[in-house]
Simulated assay, not measured.
Amino acid sequence: MKFTLSYEQRQFAQALRDALKQSTEWDTLLALGVHEVESGPDLVVAFLELGRAAVPGPVVESFAVLRETSSTLAWEPHVPYVVDNAENTYAIVDDVRYRAILGDPQKSVDPTRRLHGFRLGEAVGPMDPEAFDRGVLACSAQLVGLGRTLLERTRDYALQRKQFGKAIGSFQAVKHQLADVHVGLELAEPLVFGAAVTMSPRDVSAAKIAVGQAAYQAMRTALQIHGAIGYTAEFDLSRWLLKVRALVTAWGTEAYHRERLMAALCG
């Protein structure tokens, strides 16, 4: 399958990238029409850029899954807590949407993901059957974008940081690490676009597996090359590092998606 972005999609991606360099506020996303995105490929284009900028908030839940502004949800066991707070809060149980009544805050490895326990309120109605896969797809695209930024920032750091009088980026071992990250992301991204075209559970799960591995490798490599400074609050790389750590297991762990993929292949 060959997938090439249209002129309009490239323009949309560039507009998002430029705007998110200035602000990652919710109003910026609404002004650019992220809440109006409907097709799978357009969703991937948008969430790649949201990942690049490490945009906080329940963007997957609101824009991809519920397709409602100022909304969020929990979907056990894959999204066990309500992500952030919003005007409309739901919980999905057995493909039925319920109102969710927020409970106590919960800890997250990513401090920008404010999690809450919940209890079920009134039933609202059935959930869109493609909603879960849209969430997995959007999360996968986010992870690609996060990995891209981690790779770019790590490359730039390696070209500036010197040891023994040389930039560490000139060392063969560092080059190999960065090359491995680049290859992983290059191989994973087409799977995400392919899944966006078919929207089959098999392809969506395959994409999430590949992207999760590639983004995690980008995170580990970025931390290793930056050293402990990568996790310090003063150095904002931690925004990307911690978001990858949280999203790798969000919307289904690798084990879950491997089981789902095997069931599709063997069924």
Results as ranks from 00 to 15, higher is better:
V124G: 02
V83T: 09
R99Q: 15
S108F: 12
E87N: 08
Y98E: 10
Q106M: 14
E61Q: 15
R161N: 08
L178A: 06
P56N: 15
S108R: 09
P129H: 07
F164Y: 14
D156E: 15
D128G: 06
R113A: 14
L146Q: 06
S140R: 05
T149L: 11
L150W: 01
P105M: 01
D84E: 13
V83D: 07
P105G: 02
S70N: 13
Q172K: 12
T154F: 03
E186G: 01
V174K: 01
P126Y: 06
D104I: 08
R99Y: 01
D104M: 11
V44L: 15
R161M: 11
S70F: 11
P77I: 03
F164H: 12
L150I: 03
G165P: 07
H116L: 02
R97S: 02
V55S: 05
L102K: 13
R134N: 05
A46I: 15
G117C: 01
E122G: 08
Q172Y: 04
Q172M: 03
G51N: 01
P126T: 11
F118G: 05
L143W: 05
A100N: 10
P56E: 14
G169N: 10
Q106S: 07
N85R: 15
L159D: 15
K175Y: 01
H78Q: 13
E61V: 03
G145A: 09
L48A: 02
N88C: 07
A158P: 13
V183F: 10
T154Y: 02
F47L: 09
L159T: 12
Y98Q: 07
I101A: 05
V96E: 14
V124N: 03
T72H: 04
L50M: 09
A54E: 03
D110S: 07
L48H: 08
V83N: 05
P129C: 08
G135W: 07
F132Q: 09
D128W: 11
V183Y: 12
G184F: 09
P58T: 00
D42N: 14
L102D: 08
A54L: 05
T89P: 04
V181D: 08
Q172R: 11
V79L: 14
G121Y: 13
A131W: 12
R67S: 00
L146W: 03
L143E: 05
H176I: 05
I92Q: 06
G145L: 10
L178P: 09
Y157M: 15
E76Y: 06
V181W: 05
A86M: 05
Q142S: 11
S39D: 14
H182K: 14
L66S: 01
